[in-house]
Simulated assay, not measured.
Amino acid sequence: MESITKNRQSLDSLRAMVARAYGDDQVPSGTSSEGDWVQELGHGWFNVAYRLRLRDGYQAVLKVAPPAGVEVMTYERQAMANELTALSLLKQTDVPVPVVDFADSSGELVDAGWFMMRYVDADNYGVIRSTLSACEQDKLDVAVGAATRSLNALTGPAFGPLNGPGVPSWRQCFLGMVADVLHDGERRDVDLDYAGIHTLVAAHAGYLDEVTEPRFVEWDLWPSNVLIRDGRIECLIDHERAFYGDPLIEAGFVATQQPAFGNPTAFVRGYGKVTFTENERIRRRLYNLYLTTTMVIEAVYRGRTDPDRNAWARARLAEAMARLS
């Protein structure tokens, strides 16, 4: 996926990062061009990622944070540090995640943080999902639901970023998240009904008080962040948006209130969520409003100009507002 946040590197820079992470003896020799020992992985929207083959045949994935001069949304600041914390926390679960080999935030080799992790030989579920049978999709969606529940079992000291500072209530945290994304939109003059969104959120904020325990949430666990092999989940990737909050905000629950996002039945079954209370349905509508607002605003920060994709996001935002009105 194309985005101005992708901090692409020269072959010389990539060699320097390999040397720092794995030693000089692992740097690919000769003047090999891209495609021989390095391949850009193009599925993500935010960080650039490369698949590297080292001199001894070991394969790694390099992720590089956005360039220092590129403006990102408020919740995306320090995203790479957040992902590294998430990966460390998730070692406590039975959910497979990448193994980090090396991380560097010094800024000495490139103008941003970066880290190396072990390459996982598997297919991207989001890419191949349409080629699978309905039965295969159902089985995998159930597995994603179960994995999400395992992630949500982790608890935190407060609501908010994994690395802090947190706040004591979910209402305070979520209202702050909404305020941040609206400010991001206003800063870049994105055409939105800011007053209408703020009014809807404020009118339903009391429903957030039912959430009293901060739990680890991925928020971005879509099929494109699931790697599969032989019909099973091999690894979950891209954890930079994780925080402590309400598990109901997870991506798998989006379609329970907006069917345009897909069929949530198998995910919900795998998660073990049998029914939704009226409070939970309203909270989920609030979370959909936040998500779709973010989708519209982030298009500007990413430099995305696809009119169909942008129109689809705006249609989902209008739908989310109508469901809360």
Rank of each mutant, 00 (worst) to 15 (best):
P214H: 08
P214T: 06
P214K: 06
R215M: 09
F216P: 01
V217W: 11
V217Q: 08
W219R: 04
D220Q: 04
D220R: 00
L221K: 03
L221D: 07
W222G: 01
W222R: 15
P223R: 04
S224C: 03
S224I: 07
S224F: 12
N225W: 05
N225Q: 07
N225I: 10
V226F: 12
V226E: 10
L227D: 14
L227T: 14
L227N: 11
I228E: 06
I228F: 03
I228P: 01
I228A: 11
R229L: 01
D230C: 13
G231K: 10
G231Q: 11
R232M: 06
R232P: 13
I233D: 03
E234H: 10
E234M: 07
E234Q: 09
E234I: 06
E234D: 10
C235H: 10
C235S: 14
C235V: 11
L236R: 01
L236I: 15
L236K: 01
I237V: 15
D238E: 01
D238H: 03
H239T: 08
E240Y: 13
E240I: 03
E240C: 11
R241D: 03
R241T: 07
R241S: 00
A242S: 14
A242F: 10
A242C: 15
A242T: 14
F243Y: 14
F243M: 13
F243W: 13
Y244A: 04
Y244S: 00
Y244N: 01
G245S: 12
G245D: 14
G245C: 06
G245N: 13
D246K: 06
D246M: 08
P247W: 04
L248T: 04
L248H: 03
L248A: 01
L248W: 03
I249V: 08
E250D: 14
G252T: 12
F253V: 03
V254L: 11
V254A: 09
V254K: 03
A255Q: 08
T256Q: 13
T256F: 07
Q257R: 09
Q257M: 05
Q258L: 15
Q258Y: 10
Q258G: 05
F261R: 08
F261Q: 00
F261W: 13
G262R: 04
G262Q: 05
N263F: 02
N263M: 02
P264S: 04
P264H: 00
T265G: 11
T265N: 09
T265V: 15
T265D: 13
T265Q: 06
A266I: 04
F267C: 02
V268E: 06
R269G: 13
R269F: 11
R269Y: 12
G270W: 02
G270Y: 02
G270K: 00
G270S: 00
Y271R: 02
Y271H: 09
G272Y: 15
G272H: 11
G272N: 05
G272I: 15
G272Q: 11
K273G: 05
V274G: 04
V274Y: 13
F276M: 11
F276Q: 10
F276D: 10
E278W: 08
E280V: 03
R281L: 13
R281I: 10
R281H: 09
I282A: 07
R283Y: 08
R283V: 01
